[in-house]
Design a protein around this nucleic acid. Sequence first.
DNA 1: TAGATGTGCAACCGATGGTTGCATAACTCG
DNA 2: CGAGTTATGCAACCATCGGTTGCACATCTA
Lengths: 121, 121
Amino acid sequence: MSTEMAERIDDDLWSAVGDPTRRRMLDLLLMQGEGTATTLGQQLPVTRQAVAKHLSVLDRVGLVRASPAGREKRYRVDEAQLARAVAQLSSVGAAWDARLQRIKRIAERIQNTQQEKRQED
Amino acid sequence: MSTEMAERIDDDLWSAVGDPTRRRMLDLLLMQGEGTATTLGQQLPVTRQAVAKHLSVLDRVGLVRASPAGREKRYRVDEAQLARAVAQLSSVGAAWDARLQRIKRIAERIQNTQQEKRQED
DNA sequence: TAGATGTGCAACCGATGGTTGCATAACTCG
DNA sequence: CGAGTTATGCAACCATCGGTTGCACATCTA
C-alpha cells in the first residue's frame, strides 16, 4: 500500500459540508423538503442574511438548488450531490481508519517482539 | 425514528480535523511516528509558525501530545483520540446516509402511488 | 565563547462567518 | 388602486482564523 492515500477530495465540497451551520441547514432542508432563507433563519441561531450567504455557497457547489416562487426563493437539497459528498466524507474516515489499523498492527508486532525478548531472559 | 439526529459531535474535534493542513499534519505524524513544528513545516507548503499554531490547537483538543526533548518539542498522535474523532466523523456520514435513504424510500413510495394512479386511468 | 538551530511571541493581512441597516420587489387587504 | 406587510438583495462593518514576517530567546555544537 502506498503511503500516499487517495484522499483527493473535492475540497469545496468538504468545506461546504464542514461548516456546522451549513450541516444544520442541510439537515433542515432534508427533513422539510424545502425552505427559504427566511424560514431556515427562523429555525437557526443566525440571521436570515447569514443563512442566505450559506445557501449561496451550497448552491455554488451544487449541494442545493433554488427555484423562485413568486417573491420567495425556495431551496431543496440535491440528493445525488449530497450523497457524493457523504461518500467522500466517509472515504476520508476509512482512509484514516486504515492508517490507524496499520499503526496498531505495527505496534502489536513491536510489543510481541519485546515480549519474546522478555521470555528469552 | 426521531427527527433529531444523534449528531452531538464534539464540535472542536470536528473543526480540528476539518482543516486540510491539520489533516495532512496528522497524516505525516502518523506515518513518521513523531515530528516537530520545524520538521513538519519543511514537508508542508506553510511556515513553521503556521504549523506551530495548528499543533497547539491539535494539542488543545487532545489529538496530539507533546514531549519536550532538549530545545525541541516533539509531537505524536494520540491514536485513541484520533480513533474517536474518526468514529464521530463516520457517524455523521452514517446519519446522513440514513436520512438520504429515508428520503429515497419516501420518493419511491410517491412515485409508486403516482404510477398506480396512472394505471387506474 | 561564537555561531547555528529550534521555539515562542507579536503584529499584520486576507478570507470568511456573522451582524446591522437599508433599498427594492412582491404579495395582501382596505 | 394604494398602503402596509413580507421576502429578498446589497453594502458596510466586525471578529475570528489560517497564514505570513520579524524578532527575541533558549539550546545545542564547534
